[in-house]
């Protein structure tokens, strides 16, 4: 799985960090999404899918590798 984020679209709601804290973080200055792991291990795939599903701004795109 490949994870793509769009910092322009991100509205800083933080839902992705709640769903998958090992993959997503928020930028200190403005809370915008930061990608910690663009190719997360299999055991976090479900959490990443949950994060993409709850992202209000469609700022997370997943690509099946």
């Amino acid at each position: 799985m490949l994870v793509h984020i769009d910092q322009e679209k991100c509205c800083g709601a933080g839902s992705c960090v709640l769903a998958a804290p090992e993959v997503f973080d928020q930028r200190d200055e403005d809370g915008i999404v930061v990608l910690l792991d663009a190719e997360p291990p299999a055991d976090s795939h479900q959490a990443v899918r949950d994060a993409a599903a709850v992202c209000p701004a469609a700022a997370i795109r997943l690509e099946q590798a």
Binding site: C11, G12, R27, D30, I32
Partner: peptide, 16 residues
Amino acid sequence: HARLRRMLTGEFMIKK
């Protein structure tokens, strides 16, 4: 909207 909202998003981010 995004310009103004982003002045506040850092204040309410999870770790803060």
